[in-house]
Design a protein around this nucleic acid. Sequence first.
DNA 1: GTGAAAGCGCTAACAT
DNA 2: ATGTTAGCGCTTTCAC
Lengths: 349, 349
Amino acid sequence: MKSEEIAKLAGVSRSTVSRVINNYSNVPEKTREKVMKVIREYNFEPNTSARVLAGKGTDTLGLFLFSIYDKKNPYRVYGNSYFGPFLEAVIDVGNYKGYYVMVHTIYNPSECWRIRQTFSQRRIDGGIVIGTERNQEIQSILAELNHPLVIVDYDPEEIKAIMPKDAKIAVINSNDVKGMESCVDELVALGHTRIGFIEGRDSTYSGYVRKEAFKRRMAYHGLPLNANYWLKGEFVKTKAEAAVKKLIKSGDLPTAMIACNDEMALAAMDTFKNHGIRVPEDISIMGYDDSPIASVTRPSLSTVRIPFYNMAQKAVEALSDMLEKKATGLRHYQLDVELIQRESCIKRP
Amino acid sequence: MKSEEIAKLAGVSRSTVSRVINNYSNVPEKTREKVMKVIREYNFEPNTSARVLAGKGTDTLGLFLFSIYDKKNPYRVYGNSYFGPFLEAVIDVGNYKGYYVMVHTIYNPSECWRIRQTFSQRRIDGGIVIGTERNQEIQSILAELNHPLVIVDYDPEEIKAIMPKDAKIAVINSNDVKGMESCVDELVALGHTRIGFIEGRDSTYSGYVRKEAFKRRMAYHGLPLNANYWLKGEFVKTKAEAAVKKLIKSGDLPTAMIACNDEMALAAMDTFKNHGIRVPEDISIMGYDDSPIASVTRPSLSTVRIPFYNMAQKAVEALSDMLEKKATGLRHYQLDVELIQRESCIKRP
DNA sequence: GTGAAAGCGCTAACAT
DNA sequence: ATGTTAGCGCTTTCAC
């Protein structure tokens, strides 16, 4: 079924059918209804490719998830507390606003060209990128991209530096400084002074900001940074586990630790428990993200809640604004976070 | 940049560029290289809409997730153990095979038309549907659909009945009979005789099959079905919680319960614990799915592992086979499941 | 207010 | 082996 047949059946021309489909104002109600009747009767839907080729948008958004996880692990993206709820929200809000959503996973900076390809093939009108690490590949893609794009978790200053002035781009972050400060403050309030830290990744904006915020907040409270208590976890379970084992072997433990995500916090809890070190009695553990597991594990995990759903919502809205030309240039949104007190952090023993 | 410009720069005609892009055999290596050089230099990507309009496929798969969850809950799909890993795997395997993946969430049978629309607009070549309940809407969509489709968790007999004989369709299930039988067998082996059951949804194929399998296996072991131990959970946390509360209030508890998914099992565990009933010391709890939370909660959850990743993989492969015309008619695949013994089920007290 | 006709960028049948 | 040409189904100027 094509518009020409609809036209014939309704006794009008293709142009009129097109006008009806696109809600042109200069079609009298009577004609419109006559055409709509035929359209409904035959469940006619215009061919998207033809519309796009003739100049319309695709009404499709591209979502690009950068995964740092092992390709073999079936839960790698959904274990990742970011992606699950975020993806869901993008699809939700996107569909609600009338967009189709195309999803890609990118496992490696060398696959960044997929972003450019998807745009070049005119498959999408705009894109959302999340989980990107800072590297040459993504930077060169961004610098040359001339389509609306939303980047989640990225340094807005760097974007400003590499993007052309008139690029339609939005950056969305959560308040990592406040989040990490509230972690330190909470542990300090509980009487802890020997506080350990499990780093994320420096190449990630949030990983970097959380690390810096931790250092500054510790100094603010006049607390020392003990190199032995500083673990490199890279946001990954196995790395955190290995680092915690080394810490335990050293025989010198802090009374509390902050992990840069829930997954590492969980790995730390399990490792401590397996070595007969009780959580939270012997050591308090603070997570970050408030992923679904945080409330389910025992002891439940004190953590910082990132408003993933709201961030995704904001992302789609920002993209939609840029697509409808309501917005140009660089915009930056920072969403608020919240400390969630649960069982894994208690008063210093 | 369009193929005509590439042609001019390479000193050939558009047809030759097209032949190179589509890997036609009758292009000599020398010409191919000459054209490819220009294509690479300009990062040329052919316009998808034009290709589709000219008769090529979209190389896009549609994934339709039917969610029974509350639209307000940000984790509703990812809390759903099915969707997270499944979605991930479809994107993964799909991308790997060179397909783009478009994802939709459907919250209501009345939104089923979105499936037909996406096909009618020629946005996708084939579709995968998961989580569908049996109802008029989906049946009429299926009956009229003339594109390759994969349905996960659906009654193959019904499909056979409503679909035209030559329809390209595949049904993928996991072995729910075996899964539920192994649950009952395990509890019986642990000495339990008073075994309760938290139902899923009858309108769901897996929900129905698990229920029937439970009844039959109890009879097989000569065990009674106590109406008081039979709870309606509808696969949903809150319903399971309410039903368990009622059970507790009755004062008559079984020594073990089987829930039709992990989420309800978790809700049951929490509810029992909150009422001072110990799991597993006072009552054993068996889940179903082996979602990410199952191994993380304490006590960890004994459950049946559904091979989500493999099912998704199979789904994409089956779809791909149908798209490449290697397969026609109805195919049915049933994947194997595995009982996972953890801490929530122990010998009868 | 409505129709005729050009054109979007590509593929494929045909011609050479 | 390569170029020419006719569409694919729609939108959109331009006439009337």
